[in-house]
Every structure is written in structure tokens, then in C-alpha cells.
Simulated scan of single mutants.
Amino acid sequence: ELLFREDGPDFGAASDGDGDRNLILGRQFYVTPSDSLAVLAANAHRVPGYREGLAGIARSMPTSQAADRVAAKLGIPCYETPTGWKFFGNLLDAGKVTLCGEESFGTGSHHIREKDGLWAVLFWLNILAVRRQPVRQIVEEHWRTYGRNVYSRHDYEGLPVEVAEALMADLRRSLPGWVGQRLGSQLVAYADDFSYTDPVDGSTTSHQGIRIGFEDGSRIIYRLSGTGTHGATLRVYLERLELDPARHGLDPQVALAEQIQLADHLAQIRARTGRQQPDVIT
């Protein structure tokens, strides 16, 4: 609460019970995990342990493409993996990446095979000490350099399993017909059910989430989880690249209004689930 007062602290951080996740806050400012990974990568050269540069970056598929833009500028690879730390572990062990992260508040590096929330907080403190700027200014300058990957996740919890599974099955069947189609103001560049071939061990992991990508870099992703006795959770990930600095301060739900409408239209979420809005928005 103190951080969101005008006279509040300049920096705040939180972790979970076992110290492997991290939340970064500035004064009246929240840093998304996707943006945090990108800022860490862009500023790694300012931190003693990373002055020699990064071998590569990895992010889970639902995590925003902000880190991809940093990797492209640095001339290093950025790997898009399924959700699950074992995929990062293979890349870290093989020396293919130095930093990795996921939208669910996990960030890690080659010093350890698992996520490390306390390390991420210390990394941020190093950046603040060198740049001597508040968190908001650092992130906003990052957006002006790379563009802002506006991002949000909508969760529909406790859905009847049969309803949720039928929704996803119908989405998969409709994918081939969307490519090349104009939906609203956007042209569909690709539509698939994400599959990953591990560059280290050659294993393939399929059916990791439905991706609909647009020509302007926007994405809508659908994933189903928790299909157990208490129902299923449909997670909808929404992302749009905003290059205009005048629009960087928009609330994500406003900036993503077209994606939100399209996500419901394509999957018929409200009609099929009876839910008029998500249970959780992050």
C-alpha cells in the first residue's frame, strides 16, 4: 500500500515462501514479469556478473515478446519454450541461454538450474544502483527504446471440464481457416497449437496452447489447465506491441480492448461458458 502513495518508497519487491518467484514494484508502478525479464536482459551489461554479455534468452510461450525485442537488438537468440522449468533447464545446462523467465513471476539464470526470486531482486537493485533512476523511469525509457508489449492475462476459473475442452477442440479445428484473414483491424499471420522441439535433446512437446498471431505482432493465446474434479481454468493471454510513446501509459485493458473483444469472439467464451467477464485479470 505504501508504494502506491505519492510519497511512498521508490522500490518494492516481494517473493513467495520458498524464494523462487519475484514481484517488482516502483512508486505507483507495477512491473510485469514479462517486462522485468526484458529490462534485466537490456541492462545485464551493467551488472558485474553479466558484463561479458548473454548467450541467449528464453521465455515461456505465453510470456510476452518483450524479451525477443531485446535479444534481436543484442544479436542473440531468444527461445520460446512450453510452460515448465525443465525446458529452461536444458537450455541453461547446454549454455544456450543466460537469462530465462515466465509470466507467472519466475525468473532465472545460469548460476542455478531453477528460478531464483531473490537473485532477481538483487539484479534489479544492481540496475538501480548503477542507473540511479526510479523503477518507472527505467521501464518507461525501455518502452521508448523497444516499444511496449502491452500484456494481460484473463483467467476463467472453475469451468465445467467438458465445456472447456469442447471450446479448445473447436478452436483447434478452426485454426487453418484464420491464416490470412482480417479480424477487425488486424491480419492473422499464423494460427497454431504450439509445439516445441528441444534444441538440446531433440524431444518434441505438442499441444501447448493455441496461438493466434497478427501481422502487427499482436497475439491471443488460449491455454487450459487444472482439468480435475474442481473444474478447468481457461487462461487467455493478450498482447499488443505499442510503439507510440504517447500511448505507453494507457491501462492495459484499454490498450488491449480490440484483442479482448476478438478473444471472446473467436472462442465464443461468454456464449459457451456463461461468464460475462474473467474471474481474474493480471
Results as ranks from 00 to 15, higher is better:
residue 79 Y to D: 06
residue 82 P to M: 09
residue 85 W to H: 10
residue 86 K to T: 12
residue 87 F to G: 04
residue 89 G to H: 07
residue 89 G to P: 00
residue 90 N to W: 10
residue 91 L to D: 03
residue 92 L to G: 05
residue 94 A to R: 04
residue 95 G to V: 07
residue 97 V to K: 02
residue 99 L to M: 06
residue 100 C to M: 12
residue 100 C to D: 00
residue 100 C to F: 15
residue 101 G to D: 03
residue 101 G to Q: 08
residue 103 E to L: 08
residue 105 F to E: 11
residue 106 G to S: 10
residue 107 T to G: 02
residue 109 S to A: 13
residue 111 H to W: 12
residue 112 I to M: 13
residue 113 R to M: 12
residue 113 R to E: 09
residue 114 E to F: 10
residue 116 D to N: 15
residue 117 G to E: 06
residue 117 G to I: 09
residue 118 L to C: 09
residue 118 L to V: 14
residue 120 A to T: 15
residue 123 F to C: 05
residue 124 W to E: 02
residue 124 W to P: 07
residue 125 L to F: 02
residue 125 L to P: 01
residue 126 N to V: 03
residue 130 V to W: 00
residue 130 V to P: 00
residue 131 R to W: 00
residue 131 R to A: 13
residue 132 R to D: 12
residue 133 Q to Y: 03
residue 134 P to N: 15
residue 135 V to P: 02
residue 136 R to E: 13
residue 137 Q to E: 15
residue 138 I to D: 01
residue 138 I to P: 03
residue 138 I to Q: 06
residue 139 V to R: 00
residue 140 E to G: 03
residue 141 E to W: 02
residue 142 H to R: 09
residue 144 R to K: 14
residue 144 R to V: 08
residue 144 R to H: 06
residue 145 T to K: 15
residue 151 Y to W: 13
residue 152 S to E: 12
residue 152 S to R: 14
residue 153 R to Q: 12
residue 155 D to L: 14
residue 157 E to P: 00
residue 159 L to M: 11
residue 159 L to Q: 04
residue 160 P to M: 05
residue 161 V to M: 01
residue 161 V to K: 05
residue 161 V to S: 11
residue 163 V to C: 04
residue 164 A to S: 02
residue 168 M to I: 14
residue 168 M to P: 01
residue 168 M to E: 05
